[in-house]
């Protein structure tokens, strides 16, 4: 059952969610947060514009 749920989550959200995360975050809200974070990491790519034309800030 857990493996089937995991498979459907992977297909629906296109994230590589490990089985352990289902146990570590057993609520819908917790799992949604993990999916958001994994999706953020998975979609990381370098900036589109040239480094010379960019500004850097620290907050």
């Amino acid at each position: 059952m857990a493996m089937k749920a995991l498979s459907r989550i992977r297909d629906a959200f296109e994230v590589d969610l490990p089985l352990g995360n289902l146990f570590e975050h057993p609520t819908i809200a917790g799992l949604a947060e993990v999916i958001d974070q994994l999706a953020w990491v998975a979609n990381a790519n370098p900036p589109a514009s040239d480094a010379a034309e960019r500004e850097e800030f620290a907050l």
Binding site: E53, R54, E55, F57
Partner: peptide, 21 residues
């Protein structure tokens, strides 16, 4: 908007196209 952010210790750093932020 091509604005990138990352955590550096307790700081939040970001890089953006000139005038983008």
């Amino acid at each position: 908007r091509d604005i990138r952010v990352w955590a550096d210790g307790d700081q939040l750093r970001c890089t953006a196209p000139a005038g983008g932020l």
